[in-house]
């Protein structure tokens, strides 16, 4: 591990270290906010160790503490984490050294580790960036949470330290680079507006999920042919008698797979 870490140059090590420190601060804010919201200390500690995804943890905890259902909390967290699947595909090469690497290494997959890995070309350096960042962030995130839980009981109100501003900062820091792309920006702003407009009256958690409807805001540009293809079959099936439609539809997927 140490020699692997040494394959990274000093600048990169410093960058990873700074992110690790920042994640520790955010972890502390998570721990302090959770305790201040009336959760037992084991809850933020267990979440940080087993979920290890700041955005999903803040989201799920916020929904649960705000009176939302457990289902909404889990669902919102999982949808938020669906991006990890895409990141996992992009860094899969660094975990091809065996089953243990895959099973243990996968748990270290976070946005920042994927970002540092994607910036490297050399296989060894990619591995070093991924594991170095993943291990460091796992340690600082959990240590931060522990300190936050301990401090949260002493401070009382984490708002006095402005710790509640750390949560939106995590999301913003992750999303700002992606907002350079115009369709994504349009979707994101539409989704945020929709969530803000519905937050006053919908149950906790729903406004965020509803914000996904903002995805349709991209349709007017890149996906126009797809939108056309989507409307045509609907018009066809309506015109056809139901019996004809069902017999026609059955073999269709098979031939499509064969071809």
């Amino acid at each position: 591990m140490r020699s692997l870490w040494n394959t990274l140059d000093r600048q990169l090590r410093r960058d990873i270290g700074a992110v690790g420190l920042a994640i520790g601060v955010v972890g502390a804010s998570f721990g302090a906010i959770a305790v201040a919201a009336g959760q037992s200390p084991w809850i933020p500690l267990t979440m940080s160790a087993t979920v290890f995804a700041g955005g999903a943890q803040f989201t799920a905890l916020g929904i649960a503490a705000g009176g939302g259902t457990a289902a909404a909390a889990v669902l919102a967290g999982l949808i938020l984490n669906a991006r990890l699947l895409v990141f996992g595909l992009s860094i899969a090469d660094v975990l091809q050294t065996g089953w243990r690497a895959r099973l243990l290494g996968s748990h270290l997959l976070v946005d920042q580790a994927a970002a540092f890995t994607q910036a490297e070309r050399d296989p060894l350096r990619r591995r070093a960036a991924y594991l170095g960042c993943g291990v460091l962030l796992y340690l600082t995130w959990n240590l931060g949470t522990l300190l936050g839980v301990l401090a949260g009981r002493a401070i009382g109100d984490p708002r006095a330290l402005g710790l509640d501003a750390a949560e939106p900062m995590v999301f913003l820091a992750l999303v700002l680079p992606a907002l350079r792309e115009a369709p994504a920006r349009r979707c994101a702003l539409a989704g945020a507006a929709l969530a803000l407009a519905t937050a006053p009256f919908l149950p906790a958690g729903l406004p965020v999920l509803l914000g996904l409807l903002g995805l349709v805001a991209a349709r007017h540009t890149s996906t126009e042919p797809v939108a056309d293809a989507g409307t045509e079959p609907v018009a066809d099936t309506r015109a056809d008698p139901p019996t004809v439609r069902s017999t026609d539809a059955a073999p269709a997927p098979r031939t499509a797979d064969d071809a």
């Binding site: 895409v86 999301f171 999303v175 994504a184 406004p207």
Partner: peptide
Amino acid sequence: VLLARSGVVLLCTMAATSALTTGH
């Protein structure tokens, strides 16, 4: 694209709601 974009939308939505709202 859809997966990546839904992540972007959720992150932005979370940023907006967590910056501006507490409960309702």
